[in-house]
Design a binder for these strands. Structure first.
Lengths: 234, 234
DNA sequence: CGGTCTCTTTGCTGCCTAGCAACTTGCACG
DNA sequence: CGTGCAAGTTGCTAGGCAGCAAAGAGACCG
């Protein structure tokens, strides 16, 4: 394991207002892990032994249903906490986390969470803001699933991903990690076939460009109108 | 306003381990409100001035979509906290809360939340357990919406409500507050017509009994099988 | 550079369930 | 005790989208 320097985390909002000496203390107790693309960071039902900070890469949070289907709950970007079951009094992780690309994560033993939160109030508050945002997000997506049809849901999801991770290219906003039609289907409660048809239709209208494991939003504004159901469907 | 005694809250899990004298302090800062059936306790987008404890009754948490549809996010039972936006760093309430029957709530000014959490760690931890449970619930329902068809979703929802609030009657478990077909539809992303058809079909098979604003689960076990999709549909 | 595997596209069919409309039931209120 | 309204029921139709199947397109590997 390499030496862990506080500079890895000192720029993150979560650690603002914590003294450099304290950051060193925090880092001393962290382990750094490299997770190859496709490997699990933690798994559903597993005992929550650690909590994690994603330093680099992207991770996918996935829930499995009893009958073997899977649903993508969210994507995690670099700088975000994950696996914070302890903060919510849970004994096990509620989902799987899979590295979408090669990732670097920091891991701390679970019982340290409450210690950190007590010693560094801004850390605790920051975590709970994250939790609040995720709860809000989960409910928003539940409302979407309840009230919108597939095309609007897929449009909303693509827009969210582009906003969360989009990299500017000459064509538009490119989603920054490999994402298949199947992945988008698992986020929106549809099938890869339907997603494929939609992306093709959108591409013909100039809204997006897409290819193998790749989606670029060309015209966010028009796609947003479509997501809101205020224009003709494909 | 009537005198507020600590006995109103001393039995709740949330306040276990807090000294009677401290409970008195907590109660001194509370206002007690009676909310008639149908009135709002707080509203979506409104500034989060208070947080609440439902002392008696049931409340419905509802989100409105921009185009005027509404979705029922959850029901709150007596003894639960609600409107704890402050705990998650939110400035406004994320949804409406409506009294489903005449309710009694305690309200505290929002800024007291962090004070309580700091002085009474078990209170803070209890809140976050609640938040964790709600996040988990929201994600579970999202997965259901993604992977199950209407009949299974309605079955799951009716079972959850019966478990959460069910009163034993000679027929079975009766959901303890008035709930219409439309309400169930708004929890499951379907229409009142479909809910009506399902309840009728279930009643013919002896799984439930239902009437105007009333649902009784007669055979939870068989309904559960149906919810899991392991038996023939109606 | 060819073979293979995964991802993607696309046509066709069928079913679930939304949407509409008309009718019935039951509760509340004067 | 009748009247009115909200809640519930039910038949019919249509459409959105899943499911299946087969072919096409990249990417990776030896």
């Amino acid at each position: 394991m390499s030496r862990l320097d506080r500079s890895l985390i000192s720029g993150l909002p979560l650690f603002q207002g914590i003294a450099p000496a304290d950051l060193d203390v925090i880092m001393q107790q962290a382990r750094s892990l490299r997770i190859p693309k496709g490997d699990a960071i933690f798994e559903q039902e597993e005992e929550a032994h650690s909590f994690f900070l994603l330093l680099d890469g992207y991770a996918r949070v996935v829930k499995h249903t009893p009958d073997g289907q899977q649903v993508i709950v969210r994507y995690i970007s670099a700088g975000e906490l994950m696996g914070i079951a302890q903060a919510l009094g849970r004994k096990t992780y509620p989902a799987n986390a899979i590295a979408v690309v090669d990732c670097v994560v920091l891991a701390w033993p679970g019982q340290l969470w409450s210690e950190f939160a007590a010693r560094f109030p801004s850390f605790g508050a920051g975590t709970y803001n994250t939790v609040g945002a995720r709860l809000n997000d989960a409910q928003t997506r539940f409302v979407e699933m309840s009230t919108e049809q597939v095309e609007q849901r897929v449009a909303n999801t693509v827009l969210r991903l582009a906003n969360q991770t989009g990299k500017k290219t000459e064509d538009g906003l490119l989603i920054d990690f490999p994402i298949s039609r199947q992945d988008i289907a698992e986020m929106t409660g549809t099938t890869l076939h339907t997603v494929s048809r939609l992306l093709t239709a959108w591409e013909e209208r100039g809204l997006v460009k897409s290819g193998r494991q790749r989606v670029t939003v060309v015209e966010p504004h028009r796609l947003m109108l479509l997501a809101e159901g205020r224009v003709e469907k494909s």
